[in-house]
Design a protein around this nucleic acid. Structure first.
Lengths: 355, 355
DNA sequence: TTGAAAGCGCTAACAT
DNA sequence: ATGTTAGCGCTTTCAA
């Protein structure tokens, strides 16, 4: 039996040779026609296109790129979580930044998603991924990349961009957590609070060095408030964590009059715990968070807002620059700002106001 | 100048031939060694591995797969949003379902992320993607796939799984929205409400046919309550939408005594609007949502819970079955259940209780 | 404007 | 256990 082109038996997918034969042209002409080469006769192109359509032909991206056609770039998007608003929102921005200015809606770069919740998954990503599924760039969201990991990727020629995490030795977009923390705590201090508690993250892997806690400490020091380790409790992410931590703070012989939570979702739980304890926010206890989560307004939560979507957009732009072979763009630190709402007030407001 | 293997000049990435030469073996032996073939001598493998390491060699996934090695599968994950808890959470489940039982943490399938917020993006996905970046399967989350789109994918041999959206003609995991809606509205009816409003989605593209509204209507009909179009307002997703919609409901000559919101995030805004209007929940107005969002508890929101993470896990499992060449697994409808909290109460409770 | 031929980098039969 | 030889499906010189 003569093998005259086409894939396998009658079932396989149509190949370029099938198209060529059906159109009555050579393989190369078919290829050119499909790739919009200028030097094919209009009529010929028509025929090829028709043949391709008729056969439901689709190129093999693998063969195509192997043969030289630099197909679309691929970027690995590495995130530790996805159910937290921050990450999802940032990824929405990333998508925008990656596609930006791309007239043709379909172009752009492909995003490979890597959900590396735990340390193990993360290590697996850095060891395994780049080697076997080649990506051209990686954007890591919300966590630190250590030197070994970084070198590994560099070696493979994949450029890295970091977003929403600690400032890295490579291009990154972030917010100044030290400053954000100070904005929150200073606000409390300015209000007159001296006994301020902190709900800090229990998972240092989340964002690298715990800058928010550091900010808390220095803010208090600067304000001349002596350190009290009891006032810092580390809690898991989320309302439950916040509630539990606040419970512990409330149980102290001298509870704080204000609390700084490392995230709105934690702050929300804290507010609830205060209310459950029969106390009021902000009359008895002030609470301030970070993020300006979409639901923060509902809870009337004072918070330090950070531009989450924009961090994604910027990161996407950086990736595009890198992909285009440009020089590593300078890192950017986006501004945060205090959003005053009803969860903070001067200490002892309980006795005075009755609003 | 003799071309004796190796890529381009001195700069290009090392190729398998370079490794082979350095290790003093043939190309195929090198390949076998790197692919853990059993029939290579331990010593040889060592040498090859060392050579590869020394040259920072990484296989070309394209060439590899072209040549026959069916590398890891790729699945397209198509979502309309990512900053909404539902989608992020479902994707976390998907990840789990896709990796399930995979001892080696790195194995599994690659996920290509497609964020198709608007109709245009979605159309682009269905027209363009399958053709140029081949994926082996696609899981569409939270929206309907029309027949043309479906056919297009089938043609290309990519199997589809639908999760968290309308029940499709292909394998899907969902929740019975009709039933979920009834659970919510029936609860209100049982409480004694007759004048019930609905905050329905303004974006029908989100989840296909608006089953939750349909449930609302039939529940009322079954309860013998006459239809009142004024009581259904369509609002955009989120707290702002909920607040605005509730505002409209409150502005009616005869406002409802209870409201069913199509999502907790909308319900939350509704609750807030009620409070801002100087009324109380649930004393003056009851509010019930859907999802059991992590923050629903904080807001003391009565809601109909759905297993979001699990929908993702199940979808992931289905994809694995399909990828393994198995028969299309049967669709699954996961159960929902009413979560009683403090945002609902019998009508007219305002006058009676003082809690 | 089109065809023929030579690979892209790798794997998988076949041989040995 | 290792080497040889065909390709995988496509793009691209090089010729015509």
């Amino acid at each position: 039996m003569v093998h005259h082109g086409g894939r396998a038996g009658g079932d396989g997918r149509a190949g370029l040779d099938d198209v060529a034969r059906l159109a009555g042209v050579s393989l190369s002409t078919a290829s050119r026609a499909l790739n919009n080469h200028p030097q094919v006769a209009a009529a010929t192109r028509e025929r090829v296109l028709a043949a391709a359509a008729g056969l439901d032909y689709v190129v093999s991206p693998d063969a195509s790129r192997l043969a030289g056609r630099s197909s679309r770039a691929r970027v690995a998007v590495v995130v530790p979580h996805l159910s937290r608003w921050f990450f999802g929102r940032l990824l929405e921005g990333l998508e925008v930044g990656l596609r930006d200015g791309d007239p043709d809606g379909g172009a752009g770069v492909d995003q490979l998603l890597f959900l590396v919740g735990d340390v193990a998954g993360r290590r697996a990503f850095f060891e395994d991924l780049p080697a076997r599924r080649r990506v051209d760039a990686a954007v890591v969201v919300g966590f630190e990349v250590d030197e070994v990991e970084q070198r590994r990727l560099e070696l493979l020629g994949v450029s890295i961009v970091s977003a929403g995490g600690p400032r890295e030795p490579f291009p990154s977009v972030t917010v100044d957590d030290l400053r954000a923390g100070r904005q929150a705590v200073d606000h409390l201090v300015h209000l007159g609070h001296r006994r301020i508690g902190m709900l800090a993250t229990a998972d240092p892997a989340d964002r690298g060095p715990d800058l928010r806690s550091r900010a808390y400490r220095t803010a208090l020091t600067d304000a001349g408030v002596p350190d009290d380790p009891d006032l810092v409790v580390r809690v898991p992410f989320g309302p439950a964590g916040g509630a539990e931590g606040m419970g512990r703070l409330l149980g102290l012989r001298r509870p704080p009059t204000a609390v700084f939570a490392y995230s709105d979702e934690v702050a929300a739980g804290a507010v609830r715990a205060v209310q459950r304890a029969g106390l009021r926010v902000p009359d008895d206890i002030s609470v301030v968070g970070i993020d300006d989560h979409p639901l923060a307004g509902l809870l009337d939560l004072t918070t330090v807002a950070q531009p989450v979507h924009e961090q994604g957009v910027v990161a996407g732009g950086m990736v595009r620059v890198l992909l285009a072979g440009g020089d590593p763009p300078p890192s950017q630190v986006l501004p945060t700002h205090l959003v005053l709402r009803g969860s903070t007030a001067p200490p002892g407001a309980a006795g005075r106001a009755e609003t």
